[in-house]
Design a protein around this nucleic acid. Structure first.
Lengths: 255, 255
DNA sequence: TCTTGACCCTCACGCAGCGTGAGGCCCGAT
DNA sequence: ATCGGGCCTCACGCTGCGTGAGGGTCAAGA
């Protein structure tokens, strides 16, 4: 209780942070967390600043970030508060992902009990946090470069549209609302609603939306967590139903 | 769209599950997920059952369980629903842990802004999921074997006390309620309440509770996620305030 | 003063869980 | 006939430490 100088040895720091001494050695070795200085006896000595840096390291590590990235982050520009705030956002996102996994689990359990067989894709739908880059790569892989660019542009427009797009978004919400109604009332073929939806999409993309593209979109809705979350929020099971009817619709108009 | 036989090659399964082919190879190699059978050409062929097993594997893997354990779990007794339900509970727990990390982050950020310096221990307080065993070891390490046993007994008594302990627990709730009130009204030194609390603890332990032990308990409240969660649930910030006043109280009675 | 015992140090090897070629066979479409 | 894409089997590499081995350091007690 008498550390006026506030210096900690590896053991003390390790105990406080509940990590191993070896881990501190490792962080020293790779330059992630250097001791404040080394005693005459060769002992590592850490000061307050290092303890705080370690705290940040552990924050990030706890979400699976790799040590290289952590180092880059800490040594890059930006102050601590900014970093921590950003991190808070990431944690919140992860919590969302967890919630989603829970709902999939629930769906899976319900499906087992009901002895229904989920579609192969659906089996894996809401799996964690692919990064944005991963997702981009996957889009290109699946739909080709043109399609990916199209979608990216569309998303960008949506995101950057706080004002002018209001009416447009409003239209989407109406269509979606109607679709939810159709879903709830057990309507099998909401063809005209999907006509409107497809038209909306075409307008959004700024070009035509042929059936194959529409089917591709269905696939996207099914496999991308963002969309799944969005549609599942509208109604229970809607995120499964919507891609299904979209695909059926597309199949029925194909050449 | 024409898989009547429902058999998937590595590539198909990998794409659906959004994992790499290499991963499937690996799971085959370590016997975690064997193909349903091998084609004449040497190709791995998976059927529905394997796809579902893979789903479960990924569920568990996503929470950091190691592959050996997963295998043991899947090949052990117990049916799928039971396992998934248990897993759901684990996920929920993890979500709680995440929420806790977020609140620590918030506290940290607030502390930085307020330029106050957190105690070294507090810097690391709510870090994820030490296992029960880890926690036990740490208790012994920190408070000595006697203390750890004492605490373990106390917890056991609490847990195993659905009936006879009712009144005793009721008393605790009353004291805690009064403490929350004190906290809310900004009372600086709730000495008499802490007297009652300490007496309760002593009774619980079945032996005396000297100031040092009480201070130790404060430390425990501060550093163990279970307690933090419990007290934070009673009132915002209560999990910080309570250990503080307990420590101050203990210090003022020390020899 | 000498000896514990608890820490500290530096190698250095090991292990999980794949990534990432290298080198080669299979197969449907052109 | 040949090409592209997907399949196969080695086999080495990487991260993030765990886990000794072998050996100094230091406060405290015999």
């Amino acid at each position: 209780m008498e550390d006026r100088i506030e210096e900690y040895t590896v053991g003390q720091l390790a105990k406080a942070a509940r990590i191993s001494v070896r881990t501190l050695h490792h962080y020293d070795a790779i330059g992630l967390l250097r001791p404040a200085h080394i005693g005459a006896n060769g002992y590592r000595l850490y000061a307050r600043a290092e303890a705080e840096r370690l705290q940040e390291i552990l924050f990030y590590r706890a979400t699976g970030m790799d040590l290289g990235q952590i180092g880059a982050l800490l040594d890059g520009e930006g102050d601590r508060i900014a970093r921590l705030t950003a991190h808070r956002a990431r944690l919140a996102a992860e919590a969302d992902a967890l919630d989603q996994m829970i709902t999939t689990l629930d769906r899976t359990i319900a499906d087992i009990k009901g002895a229904r067989a989920m579609a192969l894709e659906d089996l894996y739908t809401p799996f964690p946090a692919e990064t944005q880059a991963d997702h981009e790569a996957w889009l290109i892989d699946t739909y080709g470069p043109g399609m990916a660019a199209e979608i990216a542009r569309a998303k960008a427009r949506l995101d950057a549209a706080p004002e002018g797009m209001g009416a447009h978004l409003q239209a989407l919400r109406e269509i979606e609302g109607a679709l939810v109604e159709a879903y709830r009332s057990g309507l099998a073929d909401p063809g005209d609603l999907l006509d409107r939806h497809r038209a909306w999409v075409a307008e959004m993309w700024g070009r035509d939306c042929p059936p194959e593209a529409y089917a591709g979109l269905a696939q996207l809705y099914r496999s991308h967590p963002d969309f799944v979350a969005r549609y599942e929020a509208l109604a229970d099971g809607f995120s499964v139903w919507l891609p299904d009817v979209m695909e059926a619709y597309a199949a029925s108009r194909e050449g």
